[in-house]
């Protein structure tokens, strides 16, 4: 078992799913011979053929709509959007159709599908290539929103998403596509959806994050540990539906919570988590719940993007404020 990157883990999960289930299809722009712009579909066309690994025209609304039709006919399409910034034409199909088909036909027609897109900043990409708009999708009934934070998580959660009978928006944090690496067994084992993962245990404060922000959050937790503060770190992983139970249970023990996300603050998933804590965890809180997030600005172009992204320093500033309440 060798160490692989997150994007390699995505590719490995796709190959595994395609090998075990012939109804699994991959489609999108440049997913064929080019293997995807990030190589997430590298080699799939030679192994599974052009019928199952299909380059589509540059029609972002079409792919999601095609997946609805294919899904209703018993296929399990996995659709790649090259960057999250180009996914917006598909929102019509995702909101009006993918998330509704099962409900509106009382289960007669369903559309299992996975919509994959690299998202997030920090790679000095051109305009429209760095946004974190997961909250748009977390608001939509009838779908799941899943974000992996490591190669192992990408493999296990993507397999689960492909096998799930309902539509999943699977957002891949491209800043950690190539590093860090991790040993991942190609054993076909899925990880559970709809559950948070506690990636570091601690008694003093709960840090909640997802995607690439897990990296900074864990680094911050180590810095705090050196100061004698033990932070529990929760990787939310499935943002919709949201596993508040795990977060509430952690905060019950720590009494303090900070939420870290790269997306803009207002209306973000962090707000939903904070509201959940206010609703049902208030009696356990020793300090206000605080957020470390991207600003409510347009994602800056690369020269300023490092100032936009939550950093270890910003996380520590916030956590220290949360810890300062007696």
């Amino acid at each position: 078992m060798s160490e692989i990157t997150l994007v390699e883990a995505v590719c490995m999960a796709l190959a595994r799913a395609m090998a075990e289930d012939e109804t699994v299809l991959v489609l999108g722009e440049d997913v064929g011979i080019d293997g995807g712009v990030f190589r997430a579909t590298d080699g799939l066309i030679s192994r599974f053929g052009a019928d199952r690994v299909m380059d589509t025209p540059l029609s972002e609304s079409l792919f999601a709509g095609l997946a609805v039709g294919l899904g209703a006919q018993g296929f399990r399409p996995v659709v790649e959007y090259q960057f999250m910034g180009f996914i917006y034409p598909a929102i019509d199909q995702i909101v009006n159709h993918a998330g509704r088909l099962r409900n509106r036909t009382r289960g007669r027609l369903t559309c299992p599908m996975v919509i994959r897109a690299p998202y997030g900043g920090g790679i000095h990409a051109p305009e429209h290539h760095s946004e974190s708009m997961e909250a748009l999708f977390a608001h939509v009934p009838g779908i799941r929103v899943v974000i992996p934070s490591s190669p192992a998580r990408a493999y296990g959660l993507l397999l689960a998403a492909i096998r799930d009978p309902d539509p999943v928006v699977f957002l891949e944090p491209k800043r950690i596509y190539r590093a860090p690496k991790e040993e991942v067994a190609d054993d076909g084992a899925a990880m559970p959806l709809d559950q948070c993962f506690t990636v570091r245990e601690g008694r003093d404060v709960t840090l909640v994050a997802w995607g690439a922000m897990i990296v900074e959050t864990l680094v911050a937790a180590e810095t705090l540990a050196a100061e004698g503060v033990e932070a529990e770190v929760i990787d939310v992983a499935t943002l919709k539906p949201l596993d508040m139970a795990t977060i509430l249970s952690s905060v019950e023990r720590t009494g303090r919570c900070a939420i870290v996300h790269e997306a803009p603050q207002s209306g973000g998933v962090g707000a939903e988590i904070a509201a959940g804590l206010a609703d049902r965890g208030l009696v356990n809180l020793l300090a206000p719940v605080q957020r470390v997030t991207g600003y409510d600005t347009v994602m800056p172009l690369p020269r300023l993007e490092t100032y936009y992204m939550p950093t270890e320093e910003r996380i520590l500033r916030t956590v220290r404020r949360v810890l300062a309440y007696a």
């Binding site: 997946a67 039709g69 294919l70 209703a72 199909q93």
Partner: peptide, 17 residues
């Protein structure tokens, strides 16, 4: 109901066939 949004579904169904 959303006008014309079912045309891609028809393409998907036809692709399945």
């Amino acid at each position: 109901v959303p006008v014309g949004t079912h045309a891609p579904h028809a393409a998907g169904v036809a692709r399945a066939f």
